[in-house]
Design a protein around this nucleic acid. Structure first.
Lengths: 190, 190
DNA sequence: GTCTATAAGTAGATAGAC
DNA sequence: GTCTATCTACTTATAGAC
């Protein structure tokens, strides 16, 4: 008699991994169940509909980011940016995994509305946090960039998202790190 | 008795539009046929397998880009970059369309191998052309950036791809143009 | 070239036994 | 909680008439 919360977490773990590689539409209950030794109906017990599963997936992903960003409150703006990039770098893997919400953003128009809202919330969280860091760095003279911090933050996030996609198609995980590094460097005032 | 090549082109037109919005995996023969008043079996006459359709789709898209880039050979490097961005801007629409290969790159791991090869060829074409323009601009003193032209080209392309995805999730087509403009400006030596 | 009809497979989802 | 069994809908794909 397995623990309910535990099984639920395992389902989310496997589902997240699969979605990060294949995308939401290309992952089925069967795919997830096979990897866990569970049947189709058992998954539906924990997540009645696929939308329920998808929403829970993105929500957990965002909550974890909130925790991570909470620990990145200290240090200079450059250090905070570098730790942020490091966190992103850990989700880019040899097996083709990239940021969950980058994949989902690409599928946006096919997602159920509750999922789209969660994906937007995740991206907004990133942009707002980045805007704060860039604003801090600009005022302290550590960072220099044209235009408003919010515009620079949007461009920065766009570059990271695009870099993950490029890295995957090129089967070159280092490509993400190279692009990310030069993008951080471009913001430095020095 | 419709012309065969004509029908084939119409199928590709409709399929491209749908894939740009939904992605390859979320578009079916039925979706395409309904919009053209054609039956499932008729589509299979023109494209025996879905892979055939997908490969033809990306190949035509790349050939068209080659023609477009051919007309962008004249002018200063900044002008060429701006025309390039303009060309990309025309594929970002209110209805959710973005660059075909940006969508396909996000689905990379689920695509049949012949399609993956075509997507890579498209992205390589972009990177090589951009590398040439950046190299030209650097030597002429019109552009200034750190590192090799190829590295700057990869970062530039990543930003455009990410910007398209962000623009779509935010339901804000202007967002792409704003990010693209600041990215071109950042390369200017002046 | 396009059609009807149909195959074979998979999807998300539910009922009810244990 | 997990199972077997089943349902309906949809997918890609093919056979053969017109």
């Amino acid at each position: 008699m397995p623990d309910k919360a535990d099984t639920r977490a395992q389902i989310l773990d496997v589902a997240q991994h699969l979605v990060q590689v294949r995308g939401y539409n290309a992952v089925s209950y069967s795919d997830i169940g096979t990897r866990l030794g569970l049947r189709n109906a058992s998954l539906h017990y924990h997540f009645p509909t696929k939308t329920d599963l998808g929403v829970a997936l993105v929500r957990r992903y965002r909550e974890r980011l909130e925790q991570t960003l909470g620990t990145l409150g200290a240090g200079t703006s450059v250090q905070r940016l570098e730790h942020y990039v490091d966190a992103y770098r850990t989700v880019v893997h040899e097996d083709g995994r990239i940021c969950l919400c980058t994949v989902l953003a690409a599928e946006d128009s096919t997602l159920p509305e509750p999922m789209r809202a969660e994906v937007r919330a995740f991206l907004d969280l990133n942009e707002h946090w980045l805007t704060g860091v860039l604003d801090q760095g600009q005022h302290q003279g550590e960072l220099r960039f044209p235009g408003a911090p919010a515009e620079a933050a949007a461009a920065f996030l766009a570059t990271l998202e695009g870099a993950m996609i490029l890295a995957r198609t090129a089967c070159d995980v280092e490509r993400f790190a190279r692009i990310a590094r030069r993008t951080v460097d471009a913001l430095r005032a020095a």
